[in-house]
């Protein structure tokens, strides 16, 4: 018999999970709209469908723990605590953005929240995460470094180098693979000789597990357990979060390589609907409460768009700033 939600988490925590997932979804859907209006330009990779991973994992970590992500990073930053309006302003390229409009969608960064960046060279964050973990270990800060990445990046050399290195030096890194089954249009089994991705860590003597990435509670529990294991033993650990992106790779991808029946199956497992059903069934929230949460999130996102629209562009002089200290 599965445990009830109440046995696992407080009502406040459960409703916070729900609210964070809805906020991320509304934010991403708003980004799509702003992109179609030409307000957001460049590359735009949306997280819709994968919210349980960011929300569950972040809750399983401590605030002092470092988080790094790839280029699909809006939700990771927002769940960590970045203000949605600053993220939206960054996407608009405005001076009030999280990185003064210099990073854009793929390069969010908030060191005061220990959100150590979105990186857009596939697999580029692996060595940096390894170095952050080493640095924090040397400084005796008792931090875990959580490194998020997609299934496609596991075929980069940096993945292998960093897994080997982090185990060799026994560094506190929690590797979290967001396996959404596609590297742009190439499905996992067409890119990885071993399609059961979590099994690829055995060559580096790093324990691993596969977790349902559409279930925020499962992600939370697995991360909390894994992060404490990493913290205590000062050794790397690997989680494969099995998830799905509801949209294409980026805004320019109509995702014709997937069948609608496949997408339908995954949409029926939508992490937000999944949690709302359980919250209602177990009497933790009423539909009215959930609707209120959704309204609040929508209002926050609308406010973010307004803030981004009204914010000033960077000054021309900014182009020469922040190159050197």
């Amino acid at each position: 018999m599965a445990e009830t939600l109440r046995e696992l988490l407080s009502e406040d925590e459960l409703l916070r999970f729900y609210e964070q997932m809805v906020l991320c979804r509304e934010f991403e859907e708003s980004c799509a709209e702003q992109y179609s209006k030409g307000h957001i330009t460049g590359f735009l990779h949306l997280y819709s469908g994968q919210e349980a991973v960011a929300v569950g994992c972040t809750a399983g970590l401590q605030q002092k723990d470092y988080i790094l992500s790839a280029y699909r990073d809006h939700a990771q930053a927002i769940v960590r605590g970045a203000e949605p309006k600053k993220v939206m302003a960054e996407l608009f390229g405005k001076a009030t953005g999280l990185c003064k409009g210099k990073g854009g969608s793929m390069h969010l960064f908030a060191p005061e929240l220990n959100f150590m960046g979105g990186y857009a060279i596939v697999g580029g964050q692996f060595p940096i995460a390894t170095g952050l973990a080493w640095g924090s270990q040397l400084l005796e800060e008792d931090r875990v470094t959580a490194c998020f990445f997609g299934d496609g990046s596991m075929n980069q050399g940096t993945f292998h180098e960093s897994l080997n290195w982090s185990r060799l030096w026994d560094l506190p890194v929690l590797f979290v693979c967001e396996n959404n089954f596609y590297g742009i249009g190439t499905e996992v089994h067409r890119a990885s000789a071993q399609a059961a991705l979590h099994r690829r860590t055995c060559g580096y003597d790093i324990p691993s597990e596969k977790v349902d990435g559409m279930d925020v509670i499962a992600m939370y529990q697995a991360t909390k357990r894994a992060a404490e294991w990493v913290r205590e033993r000062q050794r790397p650990y690997f989680i494969e979060a099995v998830t799905y992106r509801f949209r294409g790779h980026s805004m320019s991808d109509p995702a014709k390589y997937r069948s609608s029946s496949e997408t339908d199956v995954w949409k029926s497992r939508d992490p937000i609907i999944n949690l709302s059903r359980r919250l209602l069934e177990e009497g933790i929230a009423t539909q009215e409460q959930l609707d209120d949460i959704a309204k609040r999130c929508l209002a926050q996102v609308e406010e973010s768009v307004r803030f981004a629209e009204e914010s000033p562009w960077p000054e021309d002089a900014a182009v020469w700033e922040d190159i050197h200290v």
Binding site: Y66, M116, G124, F126, P127, I128, A129, T130, G131, L132, A133, W134, G135, S136, L138, L139, G157, T158, E161, S162, N164, W165, L168, W169
Partner: peptide, 24 residues
């Protein structure tokens, strides 16, 4: 410390460690 023959990661580890506050 000695490290593996992994030049890309040698540099990346320094980037991360420097961001964490040591001077590699």
């Amino acid at each position: 410390r000695d490290c593996p023959i992994s030049e890309n990661t040698i540099v990346g580890v320094a980037v991360g460690a420097a961001m964490a506050g040591v001077r590699p």
